[in-house]
Design a protein around this nucleic acid. Structure first.
Lengths: 220, 220
DNA sequence: TCAAAAGTGTTGCAAATACACCCATGT
DNA sequence: ACATGGGTGTATTTGCAACACTTTTGA
């Protein structure tokens, strides 16, 4: 019995998020060829025999977009029969989060003609079932912000409380009271002062996360 | 290029939970052959080309244990290189929940010599990385009980508030105040009265879930 | 009549919300 | 001097936690 017949192909796909202009964006790639050439898709590719799933996700991400050293988390595995019209493909999907304005390689790659950030709330039609992937990822992201310190992955090392608040507002999709927000966040003791940002107006205190690693907490 | 070389085998494994004597139990199977013959494992098997992942999980569960019509939810996909010493296998794992005292076919199946419920907190050594699977499943289960009505999957159609409370206590691993518990649960309006249970003592009101389908809620 | 489980209310505390004014700076 | 965003405190409400006694039944 050949594995060809009996086992689906295994692939990984990654939904990369960042916040630009206080709005959540997803990184989309335009495939050069294949059944969905010319239609936006999430970056991804096949898993190789000698690598784990996480490794595959990181490798594909680096190869297709130049993005490395990101927060990466497995999301869900999609395996319906018709998600790829050509072949049976099971896709293990990932969420990645990068700091605001995160840069990718503008030139695309062998596989993708170009890459672009698109608003997560107004996506163009996507290849495969990637729309469902992004929806699932958004749900996970919103939920996890409420009980983890994951925002740190979306912020540069230092930031103001206003930055942090607008980030929460962008992802949660609702306004928060500034005074209550500051009280709450500071009372958690996750931040430390890290200088001052001078600008057009009264200077704002800069903060940094005490620990830049995933933790469970109670917020908002 | 042959798929044999390039793509791992795809399998599903299912962690079936139930509550027996107010203690969480997992269903384990004893493989007849293979690299882990004689070591307890979670029931599972390969995904076939013509079925989705969910279908594969249900099929394997039915074939190996006789269990059908269960609540089933995808958990996580495990894909490290050495989880199966013989071959590269990516396993899409599932959590299943069945009502207390749930019966399985005692005789086992072609693949498994026998089946047994074991306390989730005191498991024997398990095959593959199934220990990690159960740990992950337990985490998911505990977390989800706090914001969904999933307990209904673990209960028969009618039950007393004491039944419900001891179920929560079993899974969360801590005692709850009876009066506060009743207030909270009843205030959610998820239950309806469904008669009376007569026993050795003062009869208890029976309740049933208004809706037997997964919903998000705020509890405990 | 006794043992065993079912049922029920109140009070205190802590956390969340709502809300308005002064401050520091660059232009 | 003024416009702009930064920074702070209090009063109210709401939800959670702690806690003890009475009721009903079968044995």
């Amino acid at each position: 019995m050949s594995t060809d017949d009996a086992s689906p192909i295994v692939a990984v796909d990654v939904a990369v998020f960042t916040v630009l202009d206080a709005v959540l964006h997803v990184l989309l790639a335009m495939p050069r060829g294949g059944a969905f050439a010319g239609k936006w898709a999430l970056p991804g590719g096949r898993v190789r025999p000698e690598e784990s799933l996480d490794e595959a996700a990181r490798r594909e991400l680096a190869a297709q977009t130049g993005i490395t050293n990101v927060y990466l988390e497995q999301l869900y595995t999609f395996g319906s029969l018709l998600r790829d019209p050509a072949r049976r493909v099971v896709s293990v999907t990932y969420v990645a989060l990068i700091p605001h304005g995160g840069r990718f390689q503008d030139a695309g790659s062998e596989k993708y003609a170009h890459l672009a950030w698109r608003r997560a709330s107004r996506l163009p039609p996507l290849a495969y079932d990637h729309h469902a992937v992004v929806r699932t990822a958004l749900g996970r992201l919103r939920a996890k912000l409420e009980y983890t310190n994951l925002v740190y992955t979306l912020l540069p090392r230092t930031f103001t409380l206003a930055d942090l608040q607008s980030l929460y507002e962008a992802i949660l999709g609702r306004a928060l009271d500034r005074r209550n927000f500051r009280k709450k966040i500071l009372s958690l003791g996750l931040l430390m002062r890290a200088g001052v940002r001078r600008g057009a107006h009264r200077p704002a205190t800069l903060y940094a996360f005490r620990h830049r690693r995933p933790m469970m907490i109670e917020i908002l």
